[in-house]
Nucleic acid binder design. Sequence first.
DNA 1: GCGTTAGGATACAGTTGTGTATCGAGTGCG
DNA 2: CGCACTCGATACACAACTGTATCCTAACGC
Lengths: 208, 208
Amino acid sequence: MSETPGTTRRRSATRERLLDAARDVLAREGIHGASVEHICEHAGFTRGAFYSNFASKDELVQALFEREFADLMSGIEEAVDPQTYAGLAPGESLGRIMDRFLELRPPDRDFFLLHAEFQLRGLRGDIGGEEFNALWRMVGVRISAVVERVLSDLGLRTSIPVRQLVTILLGTYDAELREALVEDRPLDADLLRVTLPALLLAATEPAD
Amino acid sequence: MSETPGTTRRRSATRERLLDAARDVLAREGIHGASVEHICEHAGFTRGAFYSNFASKDELVQALFEREFADLMSGIEEAVDPQTYAGLAPGESLGRIMDRFLELRPPDRDFFLLHAEFQLRGLRGDIGGEEFNALWRMVGVRISAVVERVLSDLGLRTSIPVRQLVTILLGTYDAELREALVEDRPLDADLLRVTLPALLLAATEPAD
DNA sequence: GCGTTAGGATACAGTTGTGTATCGAGTGCG
DNA sequence: CGCACTCGATACACAACTGTATCCTAACGC
């Protein structure tokens, strides 16, 4: 993503600044609530710059979504890299992966808010919503694959469908993040790094 | 809630119709996206009726939130009523409560969307947001109390903080509901009624 | 049935926001 | 070093929405 030929340095810098501003403003005011005007003034531009770079607000939102999603995905990929947990005691793997992920992507209120907005678009079938659903499904698939690989490394298999296991994993992460943000406290690392992996391992059995 | 003296029958019927319409329209278009005009025409009124009943859109949203929340709360209260699970085999209680709750409040896309919108308000500190946070905290407390009572009935105590347990419970429910809605399939009852309770029981030990 | 009042419709003014067309300045290239 | 052109600013037309003020009619008491 970048240096498309024919795009000057100046131009892409402006785009980035607009996207950065959009991240802040959209998180604070919501996708519908934020005006193009607000985004521009937060970026230090006028609407002229905006419409020179994006055809509409929807296009900006789409671009922002893609950027944020790519960031998230690279965080996941880095966290689930096998060398993250190579040579660890059995049962430590999941906790270590979670640990690494939390390190790479500490709680980020703005991201959470944006993500929630995108999610709503997906559920509503708004513009770009289907794309969100598809990408999010990808996250689920990716996590499933990792869980399965880790378990097989440990010589275990799940006694419940992996899909259920992933739902518990993602749901708990999401709920804990939300609670922490609402109560304005740090994440309960113990829940995510110890309790949750232990619980999930309780739903496995030795592979035959 | 109702028959406030001085309020005629006609008036409160109009209010209800407006609230019903708001539920649909707000779910479909989002709180910011929906115009008062849309809500009114969906209810079969003009804006004149609206402003005769509510001072502003925010006030309507607040009223709707309160109505929805009261419904949810009564669903919870009814589901956690001790006679729901009286005389059941140990370990069945949580599953039975969940069962009953799903029966009383089957998946409802509109409610889910509304709830997500309210949640965003809470996180952003928008109008009425703090109230949402407070009521939601109440749900957490209520669930905690029930979990503790059920466990004590069974002669068990948690080996992890109850708060963590509740986070897992609510998070999983939420995630499963979301997935089901996105994929347009029924809820995975097995996950919520069997797997989840079993998993949570795995995080308990006999009380001394 | 008749008058009174409450509740809803209609019409209007003002605000906010989008998108487009045009203009001017700074940038990068030869 | 100057020219061409890209990019961002300014100004404008237009659409959507909110909230208010006024009018009209249907409900209810007597």
